[in-house]
Amino acid sequence: MFFRALRHFEFFEPKTVAEANELLLSYGHQASVMAGGLSLIQTMKTGEKKPEAVISLQKIDSLKFIDSDNDQDLKIGALATIRSIEKSREVQKHWAVLVQTARCIGSVEVRRMGTVVGNLCDGTPASDLATILIAMGAKMRVTSSGAEREVPLENFCVGPHQTVLEEGEMVREVRVPSLGDHSFASYVNLARTKPDITKVSVGVLVKNQNGACGDVRIAVGAVAPVIVRVRKAEELLRGEKLKASTIEEAARLAQEDVVVRPITDIRSNAGYRKEMVRVLVERALTDVVDKMNGAHAH
């Protein structure tokens, strides 16, 4: 009654996805979807968002899930918190890199309140989770009244905090392909202090094909308006043995890739970020090689 940081808004708590979709359709761009609420509340405090209606998903029990079976995709529902994937034994066992990446978000409270899907929908190019998930080939399941579509995560953002979601649409879940026994992933990042937002990061996924590099995806965060893949480096690696010299060359190609066009901001400068793409790609790939060798040794 006295201090209230937020403006008034209509508040809805639909019980089903269909109900949520209906509300989204009727309020159009004046509605904001709230999962964990962290980023929405911040943008409302600053006035970047002034929704007439806030549609909370928190009462939709069907969105609170993590379906994890090593043979199949990992399915993370829109209400699954970052903490919950970190705590999931299945995720720890089969998608350990996600647990490690989640912990790059320093605050346990933020991981407990924030959802994985919310983090991805926020659309920041510095998202740790989005960077590794793009490398892992994750896909967003998008619903709207009466329709559903799938968007590869790497196409989901079109700019900083801008996504392909259209009026009335929301993300129901994100799907992460199984790593199986032959794929290895690694995530490395740099930040000013350990809990700070990432200044540059690299996620890689390599499929081991008889000791050589099969399919490979390298995603780089915080160096462009959206998280990018460095395809020239990927092409170089495909079919090659991951020798130190090959990794070094791939890292160099990654740094030089035209998609890497970082800016200077409060966290770092463009030149440093660009150079760190090379260092981090090299480190991530070296880590993958170590993991492959470790798996082989078992």
């Binding site: 201090f3 209230r4 940081a5 937020l6 808004f9 806030v54």
Partner: peptide
């Protein structure tokens, strides 16, 4: 409680 009230505000003010 107004829907725009934060938990901190209710605990402190109310």
């Amino acid at each position: 409680v107004e829907t725009n009230a934060l938990l901190s505000e209710v605990l402190q003010d109310d």
